[in-house]
Simulated assay, not measured.
Amino acid sequence: MLYAILAYHVEDEVLSWTAEEDATVMTNLSAAHEPLRAKGHFGPAARLDETRKARTLRGPGAGMVLDGPFAETKEQLLGFYIMEFDSDDGAIAAARELRKANPGAVYEIRPIKLFLPADGFGATPG
């Protein structure tokens, strides 16, 4: 079974780190990744950019694009996509297409700050 492990932290604290402090944390995380990778457990990983850069598509019809990742309290994160576009506009257009297939869903659009590939990590059937 695959698991999504979502990392939460106090964003203001992370944003206050110096470049050296951030590099130290990333080095420590890399060291934690290696044994997981060696055992075949480590899949794709992404570091999201700041929440102020997030957008959420919600509402009826084509929906409205709102600033922020702020979910209604009854909503839970149920999955995620990693896609590549040249601008927010492309990502928003893709979210609109996904929403056509699942009109009740809310899609948060966040730039990814760091992406670590899957290193051949296996896929599971749909």
Rank of each mutant, 00 (worst) to 15 (best):
E34Q: 11
S30L: 06
R99F: 05
E11T: 02
I112S: 07
S16K: 15
A105S: 14
R47A: 08
R110N: 07
A71P: 02
A38E: 08
A7D: 10
Y8Q: 13
H9V: 14
G120Y: 06
A71V: 04
A4Q: 12
D88Q: 07
D67W: 05
E50M: 08
A123N: 05
F121K: 02
G90P: 08
P125H: 10
K113Q: 10
H33V: 03
P69V: 00
K53H: 15
G59M: 02
A19M: 09
F70C: 00
A23H: 08
A4K: 10
P69Q: 03
R58E: 15
G90S: 04
I112L: 14
D119C: 01
L98R: 12
F121Q: 02
M83T: 15
P111G: 03
R37H: 08
I92H: 00
A95W: 05
A23L: 07
L116D: 09
K53D: 15
R52Q: 11
T56S: 09
D88F: 13
P69N: 05
R58Y: 09
E20Q: 13
L57D: 03
S87E: 11
L29Y: 08
H41N: 07
T24F: 06
G68D: 03
M26C: 06
G126Q: 07
L66A: 15
S30P: 00
V106N: 10
M26H: 12
E34P: 00
L66T: 15
A91G: 04
A4W: 12
V25I: 14
P117Q: 07
A91T: 01
D89K: 12
N102Y: 10
G90D: 09
G61M: 01
P60D: 10
H9C: 11
M26D: 13
E11S: 03
G63H: 04
L78D: 01
E50S: 15
T124N: 01
D67Q: 14
I5V: 14
S30H: 12
P60S: 08
L48C: 02
K74V: 10
H33Q: 06
D49C: 00
E97L: 06
R58K: 15
R55I: 00
F42I: 00
A32G: 10
K53T: 13
D88T: 00
A4L: 14
D89W: 05
A23C: 01
K74L: 10
N28Y: 09
Q76N: 12
S87K: 07
